[in-house]
């Protein structure tokens, strides 16, 4: 890719140079970029063979250029999100190895890596992460499932709405962790406490968003559906529920957030296994590396859940504007 620069004085000075002047610069010419009068005008003529179409690049060349540019942009945007975390990691490692950071305050990434190798080697990590994931998913299944169910019923059926929604709205203002002492009194530090707390935490995000999604179904579409002969069930299945689905999935993503939050708190206080238990025990033994490791695992599990939710959105909402790119290919 080369650009030609006009440096001849004829081309610079007059505000409206005669075309003949521009032809001096072979080929690049007639696209006639406005002259700036500042001493040089560059006209883009890319690898133009002499005499071919006044030196303009062929469409194929243009396309190739465009593709190259697009590929470069894509690579740039693939790398960009990782620049900050990697830089932080490097600074962290450097500070630790230079002795600027006390290992008790913040051990080096390599030390955390070592702790990971230890727990992987002993098999402790699989046991704890597995138990935590099981509690999380079981709680989500129970709480989220019920929240979804009540959201649909209360959203769709007026009688149930009147009977239950007010109570739901009152109950939702209680932070689920506030019930932890009560749960411990009732169930001790058994599995029920954790699973129930997670269930309580995931119930409301799903309930509220499902309810809202069902209630805010488009009246125009409902009217259309009735005119076009849909039964009440058909109206729900074809019009109301698909319209509420984006909201329901937003509810699910909120629920995933509260799911991990609840679990971390519950496992730290009332457990004898799980990642939360691992970190709180490590704290007592001043094993900052293991504490950090636990935090990292939570981050990974959380990210994994979020990816799952995104995948679900992609599969369930192919029509949605956000996913039109994938939709168009079919």
């Amino acid at each position: 890719m080369s650009s030609l620069t006009i440096t001849t004085s004829e081309a610079v000075s007059p505000p409206n140079p005669p075309r003949a002047d521009l032809h001096l610069v072979r080929g690049a010419a007639v696209t006639a970029a406005p002259l700036t009068g500042r001493g040089g005008v560059s006209l883009g003529a890319q690898n133009a063979p002499i005499g071919q179409l006044q030196g303009r690049p062929t469409p194929a060349e243009l396309r190739r250029d465009k593709e190259k540019k697009a590929a470069r942009t894509e690579r740039f945007f693939a790398v960009l999100p990782w620049v900050l975390p990697v830089a932080l990691l490097l600074i962290w490692q450097l500070s630790a190895s230079q002795g600027w950071l006390s290992p008790r305050f913040l051990p080096a990434p390599s030390a955390v890596w070592g702790a990971l190798a230890d727990v992987v080697h002993s098999g402790q990590i699989w046991r704890d992460a597995g138990i935590s994931a099981k509690r999380a998913l079981l709680g989500l299944l129970i709480g989220g499932g019920l929240g979804f169910l009540f959201g649909v019923i209360n959203g769709a059926i007026h009688l149930f709405d009147k009977a239950f929604d007010t109570s739901m709205q009152m109950a939702r203002t209680i932070p689920n962790l506030a019930l932890m002492p009560l749960m411990i009194l009732w169930f001790g530090i058994g599995e029920e406490t954790k699973v129930l707390l997670v269930a309580l935490g995931t119930f409301f995000p799903l309930y509220l968003n499902t309810y809202h999604g069902i209630r805010s179904a488009d009246n125009g579409l409902k009217e259309m559906g009735r005119i076009y002969g849909l039964s009440p069930w058909g109206l729900f299945a074809h019009v109301i529920f698909p319209g509420a689905l984006p909201n329901i999935l937003i509810g699910l993503r909120f629920a995933l957030g509260t799911m991990w939050l609840t679990l971390i708190a519950a496992e730290g206080l009332a457990a004898d296994s799980g990642i939360g238990y691992m970190t709180s025990t490590a704290r007592e033994f001043m094993r900052t590396d293991i504490v950090l490791l636990g935090t990292l695992i939570y981050a990974l599990l959380g990210k994994g859940a979020d990816l799952g939710a995104k995948l679900l959105e992609r599969t369930l909402l192919p029509w949605h504007q956000n996913f039109q790119k994938t939709a168009r290919t079919r």
């Binding site: 076009y228 849909l230 029509w319």
Partner: peptide, 17 residues
């Protein structure tokens, strides 16, 4: 307004009901 169901392909909108 056309009042098409955004989550149904064109042909399924036409065949609605």
């Amino acid at each position: 307004e056309a009042r098409l169901l955004p989550w149904k392909r064109v042909i399924d909108n036409v065949a609605l009901g």
